[in-house]
């Protein structure tokens, strides 16, 4: 039975393993046909920055994988506005993630939603399972 899962990402990539572990669990949950949404808040917003290049630190650059989330039917990715602003970032600094609507001739639709802390509270209240990394 499908449940509404929300994965809350709060850690920067590469410095710890949390961001990558979260991504793996997200993909597994989505592969098991759960209804999966994501939140990026606090340092988690850094996971989605454009132009990550990890050759010199000898770690796998997993940022391209976020573009596959649409294929996994993940259509709702919430970015907390307050976290972005505290870091001097805007949505333009982040990857533009979309999902393709099979029923609308594969039209690309935005997955990213910029939300306030207050809006995030009601999104979180609406979930059946919340897992925070």
């Amino acid at each position: 039975m499908a449940k509404k899962f929300l994965f809350v990402n709060r850690k920067a990539p590469y410095g710890t393993i949390y961001a990558l572990e979260s991504l793996e669990v997200v993909l597994i949950s989505a592969a098991f046909e759960q209804v999966v949404s994501l939140v990026f808040m606090d340092d988690g917003v850094y996971e989605l920055t454009r132009g990550q290049k990890t050759d010199a630190i000898g770690m796998k650059n997993f940022s391209p994988t976020y573009s596959a989330l649409g294929d996994y039917e993940i259509k709702n990715i919430y970015i907390e506005k307050e976290s972005l602003e505290a870091r001097g970032l805007t949505l333009d600094d982040l990857q533009h993630l979309v999902w393709e609507d099979e029923d609308d001739d594969w039209a690309e639709k935005d997955s990213i939603h910029l939300v306030s802390s207050k809006e995030l509270a009601s999104i979180m209240a609406d979930q059946e399972v919340i897992i925070t990394f």
Binding site: P13, Y14, Y46, T49, G51, Q52, T54, A56, N61, S63
Partner: peptide
């Protein structure tokens, strides 16, 4: 450290 900046997409 430059390599840590570029890994994280920071210019």
């Amino acid at each position: 450290l430059g390599p840590d900046l570029s890994a994280r997409g920071m210019k």
